[in-house]
C-alpha cells in the first residue's frame, strides 16, 4: 500500500473513507425508510407546492415532485445532503494533500525523495478523485439496493448517471482546493474559499430562474453542471460532464504550476 504517493494518500484516507461510506449508507437508508410514509401522505406534495418559489427552488433543484421516488430523492438527497457530504470529503482530502502535509512538516521529507513536485500534485489529485468517486458509488449502490427493500424501484442507469455528476461536482471543488493549496500552501484558505464558493454556486444555480441578473451566471455554476441536466431523470448530460472535466483539468494544471514555482513552508 506504500508503493506511490497516490497509494499512500488513499491509504491515509482509508479510515475516513470507511466512516464516510458507513454514514452515507445510513443516511440513504433513512431516506429510503421514510419514503413509504411520504408517498402515502399527498399533503407533503401540497406543502411543497405552497412554498414560496424562491424557497422551494433553494431546497429542490428541479421538478419538486414528492410523489415519485425520483422526485423524492431529488428533493431530499440530491439537492442538498448528497452534495454537502461529497464536497466536505473532496475539499478536505485536497487540503490535506498539500497544505496539510506542509502544516505537519512532512512535505520536506516527501520532496527530499527524487520525485517531481508535479508528480506529487497529480498523485494527490488522483487519490482525491478516486475517493470522491468511491463515495458516489457507495451512495448510488446504497440507493439502488436499499430502495429495492421499500419498493422504490429506481432506474439503475439514471442513478449511476446522477452519481457521476455528483462525483464530478466534488472533484471540481476538490481541484479548486488543490489549486489554492498548490499556490499558497495555506490549509485554512484552501478549505474556506472553496466552501464559500460552493455555497455561492449553489445559490446561483438555485435562484437563477427567479432572479434576472443571476440567469446568465447560472451555467457557470458547477451546481448547474451537476443537476441542471436532471441526470436522475434524463441520464448523463455529456456537455455538463465535459465542462466539469475541463474545469478540473485547468484547476489541476494551475495547482501543478503553483506548486512547482513556490517555496515549501518549513
Amino acid at each position: 500500500m506504500l508503493r506511490s504517493v497516490f497509494a499512500k494518500t488513499l491509504r491515509d484516507q482509508r479510515r475516513s473513507l470507511a466512516w464516510w461510506s458507513v454514514s452515507l449508507v445510513l443516511i440513504v437508508g433513512m431516506y429510503v425508510a421514510i419514503w413509504p410514509s411520504v408517498r402515502d401522505q399527498p399533503s407533503v406534495g401540497d406543502f411543497l407546492d405552497q412554498m414560496p418559489e424562491a424557497i422551494r427552488s433553494l431546497f429542490a433543484s428541479s421538478g419538486a415532485d414528492m410523489s415519485t421516488p425520483v422526485g423524492y430523492l431529488q428533493v431530499e438527497l440530491m439537492s442538498f445532503l448528497g452534495p454537502a457530504v461529497v464536497l466536505l470529503y473532496a475539499i478536505g482530502a485536497a487540503v490535506a494533500a498539500i497544505g496539510g502535509e506542509e502544516e505537519h512538516h512532512t512535505m520536506d521529507l516527501l520532496l527530499a525523495n527524487p520525485i517531481r513536485r508535479s508528480r506529487v500534485v497529480l498523485d494527490k489529485f488522483a487519490a482525491m478523485a478516486v475517493g470522491t468517486f468511491l463515495l458516489a458509488a457507495v451512495t448510488g449502490t446504497a440507493l439502488v439496493a436499499e430502495g429495492q427493500i421499500t419498493g422504490m424501484d429506481l432506474p439503475v442507469g439514471n442513478v449511476a448517471a446522477a452519481m457521476l455528476h455528483l462525483a464530478m461536482l466534488g472533484v471540481v471543488f476538490g481541484s479548486l482546493a488543490l489549486a489554492l493549496s498548490g499556490w499558497t500552501g495555506w490549509a485554512g484558505l484552501s478549505r474556506g474559499i472553496p466552501a464559500a464558493l460552493a455555497v455561492v454556486a449553489y445559490a446561483v444555480n438555485a435562484l437563477a430562474p427567479l432572479v434576472d441578473w443571476l440567469e446568465p451566471l447560472q451555467k457557470l455554476s458547477p451546481f448547474y453542471q451537476y443537476i441542471g441536466g436532471d441526470p436522475l431523470r434524463e441520464g448523463v448530460d455529456l456537455p455538463s460532464v465535459l465542462v466539469s472535466v475541463t474545469t478540473t483539468a485547468v484547476l489541476v494544471a494551475l495547482a501543478v504550476v503553483g506548486f512547482r514555482r513556490r517555496d515549501i513552508a518549513a
Binding site: L2, D108, L109
Partner: peptide
C-alpha cells in the same frame, strides 16, 4: 544523491518505522 535529516524530524505519525522505510524505498 542526497540523504536529508530535516530539523523538525517530522514523520508520518501513523506510519511505523518499517512503513517509512518501505514508502521511501519505493519512491526512490
Amino acid at each position: 544523491l542526497v540523504g536529508y535529516v530535516p530539523g523538525e524530524s517530522a514523520l508520518y505519525r501513523r506510519l511505523t518505522g518499517r512503513q517509512h522505510i518501505d514508502y521511501f524505498a519505493h519512491l526512490r
